[in-house]
Design a protein around this nucleic acid. Structure first.
Lengths: 203, 203
DNA sequence: GTCTATATTTCGATAGAC
DNA sequence: GTCTATCGAAATATAGAC
């Protein structure tokens, strides 16, 4: 006879609560989200929430962790093309992901609560930026092995490439500001790719 | 009908309130800061705060704007050295500034409230990242004029350079995570500088 | 302008019936 | 497990004396 699972018991109401909570937290942040609001959105009484989650903090933690677990490992390019096109595809996928409303909302709320809940900050980093960095580093390592680039430190290259993608465009979108004319995703990706190719290219 | 002054009138109590408020907001964020807490830190009654500021929102706005106005335009390098040492000095100053606790706290709180208060987000961007970008672009333009680098688009170069500085080290510090061994400011600056020099250097 | 004291609301969490 | 109803704390904002 197996022991009941310690953490996630599947339940219709429980799922409804989590769905409502993730929407609320990502939309208005931790503090501005009320348990009454969540109960309303979930079509459940507030007492039911407390039957499933110890406190607002614990509900928030469950929400963040669930999204961390599901954080889509964005597929790295598989095709064996040259450095320029490989990086272009990779950069496009990454920047598209970074600029998605849900990604930005997650980033905002985790950054805001990072000081108060260090465990969540760690979980977020490892499942998001950390995991992404490892995947990107693997792409650079592969380009190096195939002689398309000369990359002595793939993890550092991943850092540099990611940084060049997350620039003004990301900052402005994060802050909800209008985008300046011509500052598109394609332009940002091309600039980062060209810089990497020029700096690490094999002649 | 005397409304609280829109323009900042110098006053001892007013300054004390603003000092206490900036400390509280940057320390625990907007929502977790109470007017009681601010009044206590400022050594002032809560009613006095409301004599100077319409609401908590307005107090927050005054705090953010004051810090934006004072946002130190970090001095760009003046010496007419070669590209490598110029960028190293510039990068070091910028990354030092970005990693300061106050800078990170400001970033956290503005990002968290950006959706709710777009005006503040705009003011923050223009006085912080926006102003910095302009200064850095000017350094690249100067290096281009002097033939030390070949930079057709100085503002884009500023974006790329800044992005490469604000990488994993920044993210981990922002989230309050421990720094991995050997991932120091010097290493990050050197990597960014070398990449820029290789990509934009004149042979 | 500044204080003490208070009004009013909102929110997290719980009691008790079913 | 789920609900209705409510408690108690804490927060924003204000009234009125000085």
């Amino acid at each position: 006879m197996s022991k009941p699972p310690a953490c996630p018991k599947p339940s219709a109401k429980r799922e409804a609560i989590l769905d409502a909570a993730v929407a609320a937290f990502l939309e208005v942040g931790y503090a501005a989200t009320s348990m009454d609001g969540v109960s309303g959105r979930a079509g459940v009484s507030k007492a039911t929430i407390y039957a499933h989650f110890e406190s607002k903090d614990q509900l928030f933690a469950a929400v963040i962790r669930r999204r961390c677990d599901r954080s889509a490992a964005f597929a790295p390019p598989e095709d064996k093309a040259d450095a320029r096109s490989t990086l272009r595809l990779l950069g496009h996928r990454l920047l598209d992901l970074l600029l998605q409303p849900d990604t930005l909302a997650m980033y905002r709320v985790v950054v805001a609560e990072a000081v108060r809940q260090p465990d969540l900050a760690k979980a977020f980093y490892e499942s998001g930026p950390g995991a992404g960095k490892a995947q990107i580093a693997e792409v650079f390592a592969d380009l190096d092995r195939r002689g398309k680039l000369a990359v002595p430190d793939p993890r550092q290259a991943a850092d540099l490439f990611t940084g060049m993608l997350r620039t003004d465009l990301f900052m402005r979108t994060l802050l909800g500001l209008p985008q300046p004319e011509g500052h598109t995703i394609d332009v940002a990706v091309d600039a980062a790719v060209e810089t990497m190719v020029r700096a690490f290219g094999t002649p």
